[in-house]
């Protein structure tokens, strides 16, 4: 059983976003989700530096460096898009106007605590940016990440060892092995990668997993079937 590729994980997240939802994709891997959004979905992407209805990267040579995303890469604007200042942009974020924010993470705890900012150990400068505002303000916070660290240690833990971005905010976790919902009772499994087992997943997860009656199956291409 091979874990989902980065592309397949992005597709899996994209296929779950609500139609016509207002969505912010965090920098890094989450930005990649945009490549797999069906055009029929009507999802409108928000970028915290002041853009609503973000379109794809422009063709080479047509970049406008006054039109960039939160990762400071050139973007385009879709029809019906708009520009606004940072204060209004963060009002959208903090004020609960975004339906979903998809963020990367170092660790997520059983109760939805999120650790995803670079604290700047080893003398390098820290950076927080706007992830913390998203984590507090969006209606749903989805995390997408590898299920474990590169050396196989769990990222889904009882309590985060890293400095927190926000407490009790994550609602859903998409990994390269599973989809988990953060519930009042704990982490509930929603879907599991084809070929993986519940016991095997629990082995790679520090926090205990709840298994509901119906578990969906994740295919290698990132689609999910009942």
């Amino acid at each position: 059983m091979k874990p989902l590729s980065r592309d397949a994980l992005a597709r899996m997240v994209a296929l779950h976003l609500p139609d016509e939802g207002f969505v912010n994709l965090g920098i890094g891997a989450p930005t990649h989700v945009a490549d797999y959004l069906p055009s029929s979905s009507g999802v409108m992407l928000h970028s915290e530096n002041g853009v609503l209805n973000v379109g794809p990267k422009p063709p080479e040579g047509e970049e406008d460096w006054d039109l960039i995303n939160a990762g400071k890469m050139p973007i385009s604007l879709k029809r019906g898009g708009s520009y606004f200042d940072s204060s209004l942009s963060f009002a959208m974020m903090r004020g609960g106007h975004l339906d979903v924010a998809v963020l990367g993470a170092f660790q997520v705890s059983r109760n939805g605590d999120l650790a995803n900012w670079t604290t700047g150990d080893n003398g390098s400068p820290p950076g927080i940016g706007g992830a913390i505002d998203l984590a507090v303000g969006a209606k749903s916070i989805w995390v997408m990440m590898d299920h474990t660290t590169k050396d196989g240690r769990p990222r889904i833990v009882e309590r985060c060892g890293y400095s927190l971005t926000a407490r009790k905010v994550v609602t859903r976790i998409f990994t390269n092995l599973a989809i988990l919902d953060v519930t009042e009772n704990g982490l509930a499994m929603d879907a599991l990668l084809e070929g993986a087992t519940v016991a095997g997943l629990q082995n790679l997860t520090e926090a205990p997993l709840l298994t509901p009656g119906k578990l969906r199956t994740i295919k290698q291409d990132g689609t999910v079937v009942p």
């Binding site: 039109l67 604007l77 204060s87």
Partner: peptide, 10 residues
Amino acid sequence: NKSARNHCAV
């Protein structure tokens, strides 16, 4: 111009 407004207006 476009997203160059960011923090400037505030």
